[in-house]
Computed example of a mutant assay.
Amino acid sequence: MSKTTRATQVLSQTKVAFSVVTYDYDPGADRIGLQAAEAIGEPPHRVLKTLMAELDGKPVCVVVPSDKEVSMKKLAAAFGGKSAQMMKPAEAERVTGYHVGGISPFGQKKKVPTAIEQQALTEDHVYINGGQRGLQVRLSPRDAVSVLGAIVAPIVAE
C-alpha cells in the first residue's frame, strides 16, 4: 500500500504535523469508520468518518466521529441551506476522485465546502481517512479545520 496519496500530499504541502497509520481494511464491514477505529485501537469518537452530502443540490463534505450519525437538518442549518441529503456512493466517488471507504476530505478533485462536528475539537488528535482504504492520518483537529477551511458546527444527530 502506498502511503502517498493526494490527501497526504496536501497535508505535507501545508506543513501541518501528521502521521500515517495503516490497517487491514475490511470491505465487508457494516460501518467502515467503526471497523477502522477497532483496527487501529482507537475509540470511535476519535476516528472521524468522511461523508459526502448534497446541500440544496450542491456537494458538501461532512466529517464526524465514526460512532455518530449526521443530522441532515443540522447540516443544512450549519451551511445556511434549506435541505441536505446523503450523496449516492457513485456520485461521491466522481466528485472526490476517491473510492468509497477511502474518501478523504483532503485533496478531493474539487474543493467543496466542508463541515466538521464540533465535538471533534475536544480531542488532542483525531484520525481521518488519508485517501485510500486502510489508510488514516493522525493530526490535530484544529489543523484539519485550518487546512480544509472547514466550518465547525454541531452536525450530529442526538
Rank of each mutant, 00 (worst) to 15 (best):
T5P: 00
T14F: 08
T114Q: 02
I116G: 00
M72D: 06
L75T: 04
D143S: 15
A92P: 11
A115W: 12
G130R: 05
K74L: 14
V156K: 02
P89G: 05
Q85H: 13
P89F: 07
S19Q: 09
G81C: 07
V152E: 01
E117D: 00
A157M: 12
A7C: 05
A84F: 03
S104N: 03
L34D: 01
A144H: 05
V62W: 01
L11Q: 07
K88Q: 14
E117C: 01
P154G: 01
D124G: 10
S19V: 03
L139H: 04
S140Y: 04
K3D: 13
V95A: 02
Y23N: 04
V152R: 00
G57S: 09
V47T: 09
Q9E: 15
G41H: 12
M52H: 13
V147F: 03
L75R: 04
G102S: 09
L11T: 06
I40Y: 07
I151A: 07
E93I: 12
G97E: 05
Q9C: 13
V70P: 00
I32G: 11
P154C: 04
F79S: 14
L11A: 14
P89Y: 08
A7S: 03
A76E: 05
G41L: 14
K3Q: 13
V147R: 02
Q108P: 13
I40F: 10
L48K: 03
L11C: 01
S146N: 10
M86V: 08
D24A: 13
G134V: 12
V70S: 01
I155N: 00
K15E: 14
S140V: 06
D56Q: 05
G149L: 11
M52F: 14
V60T: 12
D143T: 13
S83D: 10
Q13G: 10
L11S: 06
G131E: 03
E158V: 06
A36V: 01
A53R: 03
V147P: 00
P141H: 09
Q119T: 11
G149M: 10
P44F: 04
K58L: 03
Q9M: 11
V10P: 03
K110F: 13
Y127V: 09
V16F: 11
P105T: 04
H125A: 14
V10E: 12
D30G: 14
A150H: 01
L51A: 04
R142T: 14
P59F: 07
V16K: 09
K74C: 08
